[in-house]
């Protein structure tokens, strides 16, 4: 029995050595072997939940495994740097969000979105202006009037100093001409809890993390920061309509290490575009609270440039400092 076991193990080991050895690419058939998908966030997180079904859809389209690897740490910094360093043979792709762009303003070690090639955007996540349902503020005007009369009194919960919700809050603050008291929490969930418990007055956390409480009547949306009204909340005005020219929010998309063959990027981009048309995948994403919005690599580049300009404006023109240094 023992001998058989040993034999099996040796066989297994030698087989996998072989498997590693066969790695020749043929240019015409891409992808012809396993593609690694690096997610700089942990299992079960927002990006993970939306990336896995897309990866499995790609698997079905190409007939090769798309293996998801989570490389969490440093709020996405560790994994994003890993993507930058990976080989650009087309067999490594990764995911990105606004934090890859904003990291340089908040972190001493940071990735650069220009060190990777864009593939496509898959979802968009609009920021909001939200209060507790028991709050006296019925409209955005109420909130702004109060804030102008009592500068620095409104407590705004965010997802951490320099993290996305803090950036939205600072931008909203600057554009609305008010001053709020930024209270950092470790993440979206904790920041929303603080608002639910009435420990803070408002938040700018994006819609997917609030929608369940809005639907159950525990929170009230005063405004949404997207370009157009949200289909599920047609009564909620956009900030733009209310005279505050702010369109802000996060996005999630795919990138490849710098220098990946544009042909290969095109192949993956088209496949993601096709995946995003898939009704089951769309339904899954919408049910999970996301807003699917596929953009190809050129359109995605515009989104990134907008985000960069917005941050640039915030930091250089308005002089907002996210962190002490």
């Amino acid at each position: 029995m023992k001998r058989i076991l040993v034999f099996m193990v040796i066989l297994m080991l030698s087989l996998s050595v072989f498997a590693n050895g066969v790695q020749e690419d043929t240019a015409e058939a891409y992808p012809s072997r396993t593609v690694r998908v690096i997610i700089p966030w942990s299992v079960g997180g927002m990006t993970d939940v939306l990336t896995r079904p897309i990866a499995s859809n790609l698997e079905k389209q190409f007939g090769v495994p798309f293996v998801v690897e989570n490389k969490p740490g440093g709020g996405g910094v560790v994994g994003s740097l890993e993507i930058e360093k990976s080989t650009n043979d087309g067999y490594v792709i990764g995911t990105t969000s606004m934090s890859t762009v904003s990291a340089k303003y908040v972190s001493p070690v940071y990735p650069d979105i220009h060190n990777v090639d864009l593939i496509s955007q898959v979802i968009t996540i609009p920021a909001t202006v939200t209060v507790n349902a028991d709050s006296p503020f019925m409209t955005l005007q109420d909130l702004i009037d109060y804030a102008k009369a009592n500068p620095g009194k409104l407590k705004n919960s965010n997802s951490g100093t320099g993290a996305s919700a803090h950036i939205y809050a600072s931008y909203f603050e600057a554009m609305a001409g008010i001053k709020v008291n930024h209270i950092p929490y470790p993440g979206y969930a904790e920041a929303v809890t603080a608002l639910l418990g009435g420990h803070v007055d408002m938040t700018n956390i994006p819609l997917p993390d609030l929608s369940a409480y809005v639907d159950s009547g525990k929170l009230r949306l005063l405004a949404i920061a997207s370009a157009e009204r949200h289909p599920a909340y047609p009564d909620v005005p956009t900030l733009k309509e209310l005279g505050i020219d702010v369109v802000m929010g996060n996005y999630s998309g795919f990138v490849a290490p710098k220098g990946t063959d544009p042909e290969k990027i095109k192949i993956i981009d088209d496949a993601i575009g096709k995946a995003m048309q898939d009704p089951t995948l769309r339904k899954f994403l919408i049910d999970a609270g996301y807003q699917p919005l596929y953009l190809d690599h050129t359109q995605f580049a515009n989104v990134i440039t907008d985000a960069e300009n917005q941050l640039e404006y915030l930091v250089n023109e308005l002089g907002v400092e996210f962190v002490d240094d």
Binding site: G73, G74, G75, V77, V78, L81, V106, S107, P108, V109, G160, T161, G162, P184, P186, F322, V323, D324, D325
Partner: peptide, 18 residues
């Protein structure tokens, strides 16, 4: 990272320590 101000404390240049 300091949980409140975001200042990196004793990370010695390692992103893993953020």
């Amino acid at each position: 990272l300091d949980p409140i101000t975001g200042f990196p404390r004793f990370i010695f240049g390692h992103a893993e320590l953020l």
